[in-house]
Structure formats: structure tokens, C-alpha cells
Design a protein around this nucleic acid. Sequence first.
DNA 1: GGCGAAATTCATCATGTGATGAATAATGCG
DNA 2: CGCATTATTCATCACATGATGAATTTCGCC
Lengths: 204, 204
Amino acid sequence: MGKVLRGRSGRRRGAPDTKGEILAAARQVFGERGYDGASVRAIAAAAGVDPALVHHYFGTKEKLFLAAMDIPFDPSAIAGAIMDDTSGAGIGERAIRTFLAVWGQPAGRAPILALLRSAMQNEAAARLLRQFVTRAILGRVLSIFEGVPNGALRAEAMVSHLIGLAIVRYVVKLEPIASVPDEDLVRLIAPVLQRYYDGAFEQD
Amino acid sequence: MGKVLRGRSGRRRGAPDTKGEILAAARQVFGERGYDGASVRAIAAAAGVDPALVHHYFGTKEKLFLAAMDIPFDPSAIAGAIMDDTSGAGIGERAIRTFLAVWGQPAGRAPILALLRSAMQNEAAARLLRQFVTRAILGRVLSIFEGVPNGALRAEAMVSHLIGLAIVRYVVKLEPIASVPDEDLVRLIAPVLQRYYDGAFEQD
DNA sequence: GGCGAAATTCATCATGTGATGAATAATGCG
DNA sequence: CGCATTATTCATCACATGATGAATTTCGCC
């Protein structure tokens, strides 16, 4: 039997982007188990690296989390899709389409899932999610709801539906909603979301 | 100084419903931190009891959780409120009203919050929540959606919105939706939910 | 009133956690 | 080449966790 493959001390050869691999592993594991549930050891294992190296690069688990949550996804892409049209017409469909595009691929949903899962177990993470939703989502969408009566409330109601959808479809995996094709969801949900915009202008 | 108040070994006097107190504490702590986050020690402390007593009564943490999730709330009360009328008319308003009634008081939301939080960190709990939603909610509401095209899907879409609302309002506490009066929420959300029923009969 | 059963706590174990510091190996600048 | 710097692992700490078994105190039946 030759030498043991892993376990040799000291620097490795070449110039592997170890820090990046740790970050990627962190996003995945945080996404699967949330902040408290993800152990530094598990993240290190997923990155194929000694746990101490994680601390060497990021100092503390919390800093690693913050680093992993940074640049969660391309903000301009999302904002762009939603803001394609600054009028309220079709905002329901644009919202659900953007949502499905981001959550459809694991890489896209990992950071938000991590934030969401963590927010359920950790007040600090809840604060983080709050400010993320406020800044990254509402801050942009709100311009559409600007001048709309109860605009903020209506926008948040839309967001709350999408968060619930994320949980039911991607976490709890309730059938049939977990397996239904994207297009069916768009047809089902878009007009309902749209009502949060249109409803503002109806008589009471 | 007199004797120490707590810490004396052996059976206590009187006939305190200790088992019930542990269950209540379990519901609260599980509700606050989820399954993984709630330690047996924390639950015991909340019940004013030694951790070993928890194991004495319930054997294992998992069994305690199952016991705490049992009879989470009066099923007939909820089903009754939703089923008041077996027609689809007004189902949107009845759904949000029932939701607010249950989640409005801590005792009502604790068990479901516990299930929800735990489902985000624990696959086993996710399975539990899935079957709870299926049996306790959908199983009853579905009779209204019986014969409705895509009835199950529409019912689940409604539920997903309410779950998202629960998270945004009671966990993440996003403002203004976290503080808005119940009646305002009813006015805002009821007609939107209603659309999941009415929409089934519109032309495509 | 005595005695078995139940209720309650204490002491303890094995395990997993985040974190730290020292040791080893490769890199790259001079 | 030589040597400081960086990347990497190992050994270890202090602490929290779920769980178990023995010891202590009260209850309730006969």
C-alpha cells in the first residue's frame, strides 16, 4: 500500500483555490442545514480540508457565514428581471418567473435557503434575512409599488407568498406542488400575485 | 441561611402535573428554537425540573417531540371554522381568519411553529410537517376543492401563502406586515386567496 | 404503620462542537 | 540558493449535548 492520500501535513502543491472551495462548501452545507445545524467540521469535510483551515481563513464560524452569504446571487440579474417593465402590469408573472429561475437551480437557491433556514433557528440570522429582503428585494420592487396605496404591505404580501412557496416546494416537498412543472405554477400563481397590485386600485 | 429551595432529591409533595408541565415547556422551547436547537436541558429548565426527569417520562428527545406535537391544537375548532360553509364562496376570508385566530395567540402557534422550525433543519421533522399539513389541513380543506380542477394544487398554493405569511409575520418579523392589524390583513389577503378558488372556473 | 412503587435529583459517560497553537510542507521573493 | 511567508494538518481544550443508572424522597395501598 502506497502512502496515504490525504492526511499529509503542510502546504499542498499547485495553487488550488481552497478558500473558494471552502466558501462553496459552506454555501451548500449552510443551505442544507442552516447556520446552527452546519458544523465547521462538516463544511471542512465537504471542502476536503482540515477544520482548522476554515478558521485560518475565516477566523470564526459567523464570519464564514457572512462571507458565504455575501454576493448571494447576482443582484442585477434579479432586479433586472423584475424591473423589466416599471409598470405594474404583469408584475405577478414577472415575480413568479424570476422566483422560479433563481430557485430552479441548486446554486441559485443555496444561499437564500441558507439564510431562510438559519433565520428559523437564529435571531441574528433572522435579522440578516430581514435586511436582505428589505434591501435586495423590496428596495427594488418597491419602486413599482411607489404611490400605490399600502404599497409596502402589498409588496411584502407578495414576497411572503413566494417564501411560503419556496418552503412548501423546496423544503417540505409537499406533493403535488413540489413536482408540478414551472409553467403550470406560473399559470396558477401569476394572476393571484398580480391581484396584490391590481387590488390597490379597486373600490373598497 | 435557610435551606436551598430547589435541588433537593426525591419526590416532591403534592400531586403536581409535572409531565404536563414538561410537555408545555417542550412545546414552547421547540416552538422557539426548533427540534435541533431545543436542548433537553433547556426544556427541563423551562419546566423547572431536572433533565433526567424528561428522559424518565419520555425516554428520548424524539419521543418527547412527538408527544409535544400530538394534539397540537383542537382539530375540530379549526376544521369547523374553515368548513363552516362547504361552498367555495368566502373560503379566502375564512382561511385567513382561521389562520390569524390560531397564530394570534402564542399557545396556538407554538406547536405549529415548532413543527415548521424543525422541518427547516431536520428531514424527519419535514416528513412530519408534510403529513401534518396533508392530514390535518389539506385532508379537511380538500373537500371544498373536491371536483375543482387542480383542486389539490390550488389548496396547497393557498396553504403555501399562509405558511409564508406565518414566517414573515411571526418569525422574520418584517415590517410593516408584522405589525399590521388583523383586520387589515383580512382585507388585503382574503380576496387574493379567494382567487385560488375562483380562478379554477375562469376561461384559460 | 410498613412497604413497594413512583417521582425526582445527582453523578457520570461518550460524543460532537467551535476554537487555538504548534508543527510541517510548499511557495515565491531576494 | 536561502528564507520569510503562506497553506495545511495535528493535537488538544473547554464546553454542551443526549443518555443512563444509582440514590433519595414521597405517595398510596394493605
